[in-house]
């Protein structure tokens, strides 16, 4: 264990932040490496756990210019890595009223007419730090297969990298957003037991039972709690 500890402490990696050279210990993420180098982050840092998409980063290597894409909080730094964060990218965000739409391709094309100009270059898929098959869901969108769009885009953190790389100026992550909402609202079957429970509560069905518990002495309440029936798994 001691050796591993020492090894972790001593091995330093050369990296390049916006083309400026730094040395950082191995084992950091791009995000913690930035902080190690003295950056106090404002943009480009959010949940620090891979869920929010604030820290989209483009990187390559001194020996390999191929661009790669990752979330800074989820990507380990490697030797000779060159990193640039893209914390924001301009896209148009159309306004719509979800309650007045129908879940059809025509409606989606009405809001995002340029969707039809996608020519399948696959840049979007290659730029996704979440490894989503972006181009696949774009063609599913054009086919009107909204369940497929929802399933394939479900891990989208809306970092905007796909839009940044689209030669047609499309915004795949915004298009998927609209379609997921149409799917959730119109295509998933409604939950009947939920609707029934809402009605019962609004009619005050449980109010008396609550009032009774509310006035139950603490010792008795603890007893009721310990003895309550727990549904088997």
């Amino acid at each position: 264990m001691a050796e591993a500890e020492v090894a972790e402490k001593v091995r330093m990696l050369d990296i390049y932040i916006m083309e400026k050279h730094y040395q950082v210990p191995e084992g950091l993420t791009i995000q913690t490496a930035l902080e190690y180098c003295g950056y106090r982050l404002i943009r480009g840092c959010g949940c620090r756990g891979g869920s929010c998409g604030a820290c989209a980063t483009v990187y390559n290597f001194t020996h390999d210019p191929t661009l790669r894409y990752g979330l800074a909080c989820q990507t380990a730094v490697e030797l000779d890595m060159c990193v640039v964060q893209i914390p924001c990218f301009p896209t148009a965000k159309p306004i719509y009223d979800i309650k007045k739409l129908r879940p059809t391709v025509d409606q989606v094309l009405g809001i995002y007419p340029d969707l039809a100009t996608c020519f399948g270059c696959n840049n979007c898929t290659q730029s996704c730090p979440q490894d989503i098959e972006v181009m696949d869901f774009m063609s599913a969108a054009l086919r009107g297969d909204f369940p497929a769009v929802t399933a394939e885009s479900f891990e989208c953190v809306m970092c905007g990298m796909c839009a940044a790389r689209c030669p047609q100026g499309l915004s795949p992550y915004n298009i998927a957003m609209l379609i997921r909402r149409l799917h959730g609202r119109y295509l998933l079957p409604k939950s009947k037991h939920l609707e029934e429970k809402v009605k019962e509560i609004e009619e005050g069905k449980y109010d008396a039972e609550y009032e009774k518990l509310r006035s139950t002495p603490m010792e008795e309440l603890r007893h009721i709690y310990d003895e309550r029936w727990i549904e088997p798994k």
């Binding site: 479900f154 997921r180 799917h183 959730g184 998933l188 079957p189 939920l194 609707e195 509560i201 609004e202």
Partner: peptide, 26 residues
Amino acid sequence: ARDAPMAIKWLEDLGVNWDKETDGSM
């Protein structure tokens, strides 16, 4: 606890994809 089902319903109507069975039950 009382408002909980109403909140879930509100989000369902806004287009949240809750995990459901094929008959719509949660």
